[in-house]
């Protein structure tokens, strides 16, 4: 049996979700109207399906669990998540995947500003963010690790793959972009490269997963060429300071 969110407060809804997930491994919430913090800190082995519009900080501090949204999500999805999977059958607001350290986020449509900022990797932890359409300004700002895939599907005439200041301050990780992208919107010190064979393999796995979740055509997506954006230096600010002894 699923939980109905309706116009209830988020504390209430989250408490019911937590109670339900104590005994069950899976639950669903219907009629979600922007309730915040759904799936906050969800542990491995637990899964939550959300129907409606998920509110801010969806699946923040996600701890290995799986959250699927049948609808769109607001800001700060997967804030500081440490693992797990978030699948959004719609679009996402600002600051998607802020500081995520591991796990995967798939967004069927577009994302707003500051997607994938501060993503970082650590040992075997490698965060992945796959965006179906395009992204707003500051995509991958201060990115320190992990992978962003930007597919640019369904773009209308005049729309750009990403907004201004893409990868500003990026010092680790990589961004795969499909098709034409606005070079003027790319920050300084970012290199545009061809994909290596291991990149192709990695990308292929993410695109396959995207197609599986959202029913997209793999062959059609892969028919357009991809490029890889990486930081030209891992220490962009190494010479910024002078000790004032």
């Amino acid at each position: 049996m699923s939980i109905t969110a309706g116009l209830r407060r988020y504390e209430d809804v989250n408490e019911e979700i937590n109670r339900r997930l104590k005994s069950d491994d899976k639950t669903a919430v219907r009629e979600v109207n922007g309730q915040r913090y759904l799936g906050c800190g969800l542990d491995s082995g637990k899964s939550l399906d959300i129907y409606g519009t998920a509110g801010n900080d969806l699946a923040c501090y996600l701890n290995g669990g799986r959250v699927t949204v049948y609808g769109s999500a607001q800001d700060a999805v997967g804030n500081t998540m440490g693992g797990g999977e978030i699948i959004i059958h719609g679009h996402s607001g600002d600051a998607l995947g802020y500081g995520m350290r591991d796990g995967k986020i798939f967004v069927r449509d577009n994302v707003c500003c500051r997607g994938g900022i501060h993503m970082k990797e650590f040992r075997q932890m490698k965060p992945v963010l796959v965006i179906g359409e395009n992204a707003g300004a500051f995509l991958g700002e201060y990115m320190a690790g992990g992978t962003i895939v930007l597919l640019g599907l369904n773009m209308k005439h005049g729309e750009k793959l990403f907004g201004p200041h893409c990868a500003s301050g990026m010092h680790g990780g990589k961004i795969f972009v499909r098709g034409a992208f606005p070079k003027a919107n790319l920050a300084q010190n970012i290199s545009v490269c061809e994909l290596e064979p291991e990149d192709e393999k990695e990308l292929s796995a993410y695109v396959k997963a995207y197609c599986r979740y959202f029913g997209a055509d793999y062959a059609e997506i892969m028919s357009k060429p991809f490029k890889k954006l990486v930081p030209a230096t891992s220490r962009p600010y190494a010479n910024l300071y002078t000790p004032n002894l």
Partner: peptide, 16 residues
């Protein structure tokens, strides 16, 4: 929880 030798940059604002 960052790779060895990498800069740890905390920018001025929290972007959320």
């Amino acid at each position: 929880m960052i790779p060895e030798g990498s800069d740890a940059i905390s920018p001025a604002p929290h972007h959320d």
